[in-house]
């Protein structure tokens, strides 16, 4: 079970959170300007890397705020936590 550092509440156990998939996938400003293929890529396609992954989590049983997490998908280690809108930090070694 992961231990996740909520940027507002501190360290809490995984069941308090809710997963939101890949981070930094911005909703297109004008969806009507996109081709079918580009729109489908936005809706359906996500990265699935082995290693460092930036993903969204929501502290749904706590402050209910969304934030970003850098997590290693191999070791499941949470490497960094940062707020929505912030640039991802360098993944620590």
């Amino acid at each position: 079970m992961l231990l996740i550092e909520c940027p507002w509440c501190g360290s809490r156990e995984e069941p308090e959170f809710h997963y939101g998939g890949q981070a930094h996938v911005a909703r297109p400003a004008d969806p009507s300007a996109l081709s079918d293929a580009d729109w489908a890529a936005y809706v359906f396609l996500r990265d699935n890397p082995k290693g460092v992954f930036a993903e969204r989590w929501c502290h749904s049983a706590g402050c209910r705020r969304w934030f970003n997490v850098l997590r290693d998908t191999v070791s499941h280690r949470v490497l960094a936590v940062y707020r929505m809108g912030e640039t991802p930090p360098e993944a620590p070694r």
């Binding site: 939101g20 909703r27 969304w66 929505m84």
Partner: peptide, 13 residues
């Protein structure tokens, strides 16, 4: 509620 909060916080803050 989750769906609405998600959009408010992350797409349309």
């Amino acid at each position: 509620l989750d769906h609405l909060e998600d959009y408010l916080q992350t797409e349309w803050p």
